[in-house]
């Protein structure tokens, strides 16, 4: 367990730092995949609720620090994402690539809508039409595609299981 927590902590640090450096080079148009969100989705689907909530909160908090965004917005969004996804994980079939694709796609859309709602409430005006068409949907699609590559990688690192191997 201690070993797994250490691996998660190291992964958090690497993922958060990579998200503001390397991931920028994977941009298609103006959109890059959200590796931080993918990691929280993976943790929420594979670990217990306390680990999920805590990972969501701290990763979101780190993201807030690195971003121009108001501190707390990502922390709250990612904590709630982790809580609800973990809560419903037994109803989600995430062993098939196609299921993972849709879970990530829909989770990104819901989380981002909530994120922009918080921006609207606490920061500034948001053009939701623009946000949905130019950010949320492209990012959801890119995340879903990217999850096919990174989820097996997370699995390999955290659980020492091979790509898309059934439990």
């Amino acid at each position: 367990m201690k070993k797994k927590i250490t691996i998660i902590l190291v992964l958090i640090l690497v993922i958060v730092l990579q998200s503001s450096n390397v991931i920028d080079r994977l941009k298609i148009g103006n959109i890059k995949p959200n590796l931080i969100m993918l990691f929280i989705i993976y943790i929420s689907l594979t670990t217990n609720i306390l680990t999920s909530e805590t990972t969501g909160f701290f990763v979101g908090f780190l993201e807030d620090i690195l971003s121009q965004s108001l501190i707390g917005v990502n922390a709250l969004t990612k904590t709630l994402l982790a809580f609800f996804l973990n809560h419903f994980k037994t109803r989600l079939f995430t062993e098939k690539i196609i299921s993972v694709f849709f879970v990530v796609f829909l989770t990104t859309i819901v989380t981002k809508l909530f994120y922009f709602l918080l921006i609207l409430l606490f920061v500034n005006k948001v053009n939701f039409y623009h946000a949905i068409l130019k950010i949320i949907i492209p990012e959801a699609f890119y995340n879903a595609l990217f999850s096919i590559v990174v989820f097996p990688l997370f699995r390999l690192i955290l659980e020492r299981k091979r790509l898309w191997q059934k439990p």
């Binding site: 306390l50 805590t54 979101g60 707390g72 922390a75 709250l76 904590t79």
Partner: peptide, 21 residues
């Protein structure tokens, strides 16, 4: 109910930061 307590604490901290923007 520890999962809800932890969730509550994290939500409170996040909202507190946002309010004190």
């Amino acid at each position: 109910y520890r999962q809800y307590l932890v969730l509550g604490v994290y939500v409170l901290i996040s909202v507190a930061f946002m309010i004190a923007k």
